[in-house]
Amino acid sequence: MSSTKFIAILPQPTQPGDKIQISGRISDHAEKFSINFANEVNENPQSITYSFNWDLANKMLIEDYKEDDEWKNRIETEFDTFDGRFKNKAINDSISNRFIDNNTIADTTDTFPHSYSLLEPEFALEFAFQDDGIYVYLVSEDGRNLVTHYQPEIDFQFIESVQVCDDVEKVTQLTFSYN
């Protein structure tokens, strides 16, 4: 069971074009942390539209959703440090049409090509909700870097809360940008 550190209620239903940015600090010797977009406002939701879990100890990104208190579709992606290139061919293939080359996403100048270690204590993630799914970006002062694209099985209009769990020391910022 997850250890919920932070819960925020969404001020309105999520629509395509909306963004949620979360910044924080992971604990010393963190092994994992997760961000859940839950369809309820409680510590142990029965339904989660999207679970974004970074297993730092095993160098793995785990994505999933939950219905009727049952996890449904675990997707694992291996990583060491994130440099804008995926190690998982399935994810590469699913978004390859958005890339001009290995480091640049078409129609945007907000990606950066250098490596960024996931083991640094500070993190900033942006979740961009679009018609074709949820795009997750690692944010730095240099720009944004695409981490993953997830196509939820549950409509993200049902999300009621954002939950930050596991080895997170604190959430330093939460920003809602509505279209």
Score class of each variant (00 low, 15 high):
residue 79 F to S: 08
residue 136 V to W: 00
residue 90 A to G: 02
residue 101 D to W: 10
residue 144 R to P: 00
residue 83 D to I: 03
residue 85 R to T: 11
residue 153 E to Q: 13
residue 141 E to V: 06
residue 125 L to M: 11
residue 134 I to N: 05
residue 98 R to L: 15
residue 124 A to T: 15
residue 162 V to P: 02
residue 127 F to C: 06
residue 164 V to L: 08
residue 105 I to F: 00
residue 88 N to M: 05
residue 88 N to Y: 12
residue 80 D to R: 14
residue 158 F to S: 15
residue 141 E to H: 08
residue 82 F to Q: 06
residue 109 T to M: 08
residue 136 V to P: 00
residue 156 F to E: 03
residue 148 T to Q: 03
residue 103 N to T: 08
residue 101 D to Y: 10
residue 138 L to H: 05
residue 165 C to W: 01
residue 164 V to T: 11
residue 133 G to K: 07
residue 141 E to G: 02
residue 100 I to Y: 14
residue 125 L to D: 04
residue 165 C to G: 01
residue 132 D to W: 04
residue 82 F to H: 14
residue 129 F to W: 06
residue 119 L to G: 05
residue 166 D to W: 01
residue 164 V to N: 07
residue 123 F to I: 03
residue 140 S to T: 15
residue 107 D to E: 10
residue 157 Q to V: 08
residue 139 V to W: 01
residue 145 N to A: 07
residue 121 P to Y: 03
residue 162 V to F: 02
residue 166 D to Q: 08
residue 139 V to G: 04
residue 164 V to D: 10
residue 113 P to R: 05
residue 144 R to D: 03
residue 127 F to P: 04
residue 167 D to M: 07
residue 139 V to Q: 10
residue 117 S to D: 14
residue 136 V to M: 02
residue 157 Q to E: 11
residue 101 D to T: 09
residue 112 F to T: 05
residue 133 G to F: 05
residue 145 N to E: 09
residue 156 F to K: 05
residue 156 F to D: 02
residue 82 F to R: 07
residue 115 S to P: 10
residue 113 P to D: 10
residue 91 I to N: 05
residue 105 I to C: 06
residue 108 T to C: 08
residue 99 F to A: 04
residue 138 L to Q: 13
residue 157 Q to M: 04
residue 160 E to K: 15
residue 164 V to K: 10
residue 121 P to Q: 13
residue 100 I to A: 09
residue 167 D to H: 14
residue 111 T to Q: 14
residue 146 L to E: 03
residue 142 D to I: 01
residue 82 F to S: 07
residue 138 L to V: 14
residue 148 T to V: 04
residue 93 D to L: 14
residue 114 H to T: 13
residue 109 T to P: 01
residue 165 C to D: 11
residue 146 L to F: 00
residue 112 F to S: 11
residue 122 E to A: 10
residue 130 Q to P: 00
residue 148 T to S: 13
residue 81 T to L: 10
residue 110 D to I: 08
residue 155 D to N: 12
residue 84 G to F: 08
residue 107 D to F: 11
residue 91 I to V: 12
residue 84 G to C: 06
residue 158 F to I: 00
residue 114 H to N: 13
residue 94 S to G: 04
residue 111 T to A: 08
residue 158 F to Y: 12
residue 91 I to C: 03
residue 126 E to A: 12
residue 102 N to Q: 13
residue 86 F to W: 14
residue 118 L to M: 15
residue 136 V to R: 01
residue 116 Y to P: 03
residue 97 N to T: 12
residue 86 F to D: 01
residue 133 G to A: 09
residue 87 K to S: 11
residue 121 P to D: 14
residue 135 Y to T: 01
residue 163 Q to E: 12
residue 141 E to Q: 10
residue 115 S to G: 15
residue 144 R to K: 15
residue 111 T to P: 02
residue 153 E to L: 06
residue 100 I to N: 04
residue 140 S to K: 09
residue 145 N to V: 04
residue 128 A to F: 05
residue 132 D to T: 07
residue 121 P to T: 10
residue 98 R to S: 07
residue 104 T to L: 07
residue 103 N to K: 15
residue 110 D to G: 06
residue 152 P to E: 05
residue 134 I to W: 03
residue 151 Q to S: 06
residue 138 L to W: 01
residue 95 I to L: 11
residue 103 N to D: 13
residue 162 V to Y: 03
residue 139 V to H: 02
residue 163 Q to D: 05
residue 87 K to M: 12
residue 156 F to M: 03
residue 119 L to Y: 13
residue 90 A to N: 09
residue 159 I to Q: 00
residue 94 S to T: 05
residue 111 T to F: 09
residue 120 E to Y: 12
residue 144 R to V: 00
residue 92 N to S: 12
